[in-house]
Design a binder for these strands. Structure first.
Length: 397
DNA sequence: TCTGGGGTCCTAGGACCC
DNA sequence: TCTGGGGTCCTAGGACCC
């Protein structure tokens, strides 16, 4: 099992787009002192304590004066991600994308394919092939990457992290538990800040301690994941690649499509946006994304966050639709149900789920959907902002 | 750690059906 | 009208990932 991870991916792409950023501290995520969070930080700026996930404001204070802050280029990242995948696919027929900057390959059975000399054992052969692969990604795309090779998927991921930057680490069969034992629990995918704190409370800080801990102390923390987490902490378990993320997956024969489509917006203090304007525009975005994917939504969930960070969600299941006006009506109802406190709102979000494939004939009978598709056609020609629902446009006098 | 925006998956209670 | 137990769906909330 091999995990290939592109190093500081967004920063690396930004440097391809603007070579003057090479060697400089770079922060991707937003303009300096603006709003947002860091999505990628170059190694130069990590030395100052800037990390992905940190607020742009805090990063702005920590970063040196010559640091460059860029908002990011999402379409370019997707394009480079796809090209990286094409290179990875040369090395194994079994590849899945785990995220935009991360791919897993199943290399079992490929040893004979890559063997160069009789002296090479399987590990040496695989290690050389993976080094060739990361070199190819660098040579052909100009992107640095790291890789981890191990008997299980999660250990391969951990190993790729240990190998960074621009390294390849192979954990030999039999060495799994010893490799993992000294690492902090947080290194294991699936253990986040909450689980880390709760483990600390029962005296567990390393993966070795987690493996040795009694079931009764882990169960309350991990629930259904307990045995999987413990197995992964020992380095055994998931030796299958598993499913591709639902967004990339085929739908099933009944027209059910996995996944959700969501959009949310945090209110800026200075903005005079009203909740109903934001709601309308979120509704249009979500519905138009559903239509462009050719799906109807059977569930809508509204998320409302107050300025004190208390978050309420209200959802409803209904006959599948992708019409703006229908979804908008439901969204307004949900908003009324959720908005019970007299406190300013920090964030509004909408998500559609229970997606199913839109049948071809349905729009002919459904005026709302037909109107929405006409709107999409206008937008295809003139841009997204060419047309909006009346209520999502600020009234001017 | 004063916290964006896109997602996935699990839990737990209640309704409803057989 | 009360009772048991299982299955499934709905809803709200929360942890985690990139």
């Amino acid at each position: 099992m091999c995990c290939v991870d592109l190093d500081t991916f967004f920063v690396s792409v930004e440097r391809l787009l603007d070579p003057s950023l090479r060697g400089k501290p770079v922060v991707v995520g937003g303009r300096r002192f603006g709003r947002g969070v860091v999505t990628s930080a170059s190694y130069e700026v990590r030395g100052f304590g800037v990390r992905a996930g940190m607020s742009i404001r805090e990063a702005s204070e920590r970063a040196p004066a010559d640091a460059v802050f860029v908002p990011g280029h999402g379409d370019e990242y997707s394009d480079y991600s796809r090209r990286a995948r094409e290179i990875v696919e040369r090395y194994s027929p079994i590849v899945i994308a785990a995220s935009i900057d991360e791919h897993y390959l199943d290399l079992r059975g490929c040893e004979r394919l890559y063997r160069r000399s009789e002296d090479d054992d399987d590990d040496a052969t695989i290690l050389r092939a993976v080094r060739e692969m990361t070199a190819a990604i660098d040579r052909e795309l100009g992107l640095p990457s790291s890789a981890g090779i191990a008997t299980s998927k999660s250990l391969a991921k951990v190993a790729s992290g240990l190998a960074k930057p621009q390294g390849v680490l192979l954990v030999r069969a039999g060495a799994e538990a010893d490799t993992l034992a000294p690492l902090p629990v947080r290194k294991l995918p699936g253990i986040g800040p909450v689980a880390e704190a709760r483990l600390m409370a029962v005296g567990i800080t390393t993966l070795g301690q987690l493996v040795a801990a009694p079931e009764t102390s882990l169960r309350p923390i991990f629930g259904a994941y307990t045995s999987g987490i413990r197995a992964a902490s020992r380095g055994d378990g998931d030796d299958e690649l598993g499913r591709e993320r639902p967004a990339f997956r085929e739908h099933d024969p009944h027209g059910v499509v996995a996944g959700t489509i969501s959009n949310e917006r945090t209110f800026v203090e200075t903005s005079a946006d009203t909740a109903s304007e934001v709601l309308s525009s979120l509704c249009e975005r979500v519905a138009s994304r559903a239509r462009s994917r050719g799906v109807l939504a059977g569930q809508l969930t509204l998320k409302l966050r107050y300025t004190d960070f208390v978050t309420i969600t209200r959802g409803r299941t209904f006959t599948p639709t992708s019409a703006d006006l229908e979804l908008h009506q439901i969204a307004r109802d949900l908003y009324r149900e959720a908005r019970t406190r007299d406190l300013p709102i920090r964030l509004l979000g909408l998500a559609v789920a229970k997606l199913r494939l839109a049948t071809v004939q349905l729009p002919l009978f459904d005026g709302g959907a037909r109107r929405s598709i006409a709107v999409d056609r206008v937008r295809d020609r003139f841009g997204y902002h060419a047309l909006h629902l009346g209520s999502s446009i600020r009234r001017r006098r």
